[in-house]
Structure formats: structure tokens, C-alpha cells
Amino acid sequence: MGCCSSKKVGRTPGYEDPTILASETPFTESEVEALHELYKKLSCSIIDDGLIHKEEFQLALFRNSKRKNLFADRIFDLFDVKRNGVVDYGEFVRSLGVFHPNANVEDKINFAFRLYDLRQTGYIEREELKEMVLALLHESDLILSDDVVETIVDKTFRDADLKGDGKIDQEEWKELVKKHPTLIKNMTLPYLKDITLAFPSFVLSSEVEDIE
């Protein structure tokens, strides 16, 4: 990956005071600052404008900027809170905060619901679930017959759709997660607890900036 020409912390678009970000997220101030190192790395990997574009997000996830993936698209869209096609620093830190091991479980459950509510109707519909299963199978080069896919989706709906109206609402989703807590396992990134170890270069680069 490339490297930004700009080293000034304040030039990052959407840059926010680490104290404020730390007060609104499960991160400490030094973790927020360490995340800035990661953000700078990601946000200048293709387009050096200090913002994370979808291609840069894909590059970071898959080592391939052109790789299309339904789930990566959804994550990016949820990170892009302002819906302007890019993820700025504040959006990045706040969104990643949901994945922190100490983040509120309710927030994780809600985030996962929004992620799977592909068309943002307020419900996870049967068609959406099937679309996600097919996308996962395609991504994994797994071939299952349509009958088997239908069986998987049916079984999940029998488990989740308590009201039997053919769609899963937030309340039903919460009940499902209560029954199967592993469903939100991917909403926690253990790495986020050791972020300052992962990006110790922050300490060095901030000292350099002070001298400049």
C-alpha cells in the first residue's frame, strides 16, 4: 500500500479531536490516535485524498481493489454515515467502535440487523436472506442446489420469524441472537483491544509532527 504525502494529523478530512472520539466510543484516547495511523494507511492506498473510498476498503479487505462483495459493500455503506461515497476519519472510528470487545451488545445487534437489512426496509426479508446465502456460497465456491438453499433459508425463518409474517423485524432478530449468540461473533474484533500494539508507530509519528 502507498503512503500519504501529508503527515499533518489535522489535514485528515473529518479529523476530530481524539478526546471527543474517545468519549463517544469504547476506545481510549491513545487507541483513537493509533486508529488514525490505520486510517491514514487505508485512506491513501489508491487515492491520496485522506478519505477511504470503496476501492481502498476492498483493497484492505481482499488485497484486491476490484473484488466485489455484497457484505463488504454493506459494511462500507454503513460506515459511510453521511452517504457521500467515502468514509471519513470520524465515521471510521465511530463505526469501528461497534466492533470493540467492550462495545454495547445492543449496538452490535442493531448494526448486524442493519447490515442484513439489505434494502433498508426495517425488516430482513426472505429474499434478502436467500440473496446473502447465495452470495456467501458464490464467494466460497460452494455449490448447493436451489432446494438445499431453500431448506437452509426456510429452517432459519422457522427459527427467527416468530410472528410468521415472512420477514424478520428487529425484535425477532434480538430474540434470535439471544438464542444463538454466535450470530454476532463477527461483530467483535479482538484486535481492537490491542490497537496501540498494532500501530506503535503513532507515538513516533506524532513526535515528528510536534518537532515540525
Binding site: 479487505l61 481482499f62 455484497l70 463488504a72 459493500d73 459494511i75 442484513y116 474484533l189
Partner: peptide, 26 residues
Amino acid sequence: ASPVTMNAFELISTSQGLNLGTLFEK
């Protein structure tokens, strides 16, 4: 577990596109 016996959401959660841990790999 066989995909057939898995909850669809459990299956989906294994997607690489949902594995944000990759962002932290150097």
C-alpha cells in the same frame, strides 16, 4: 457443521467480506 444444518446467518457470518480483522493485518 454441514451448511444444511447451520442457521443461514451463521453461514453468512463466515463471509470474508465481514472479516474486518483483515484491516489490521500489515
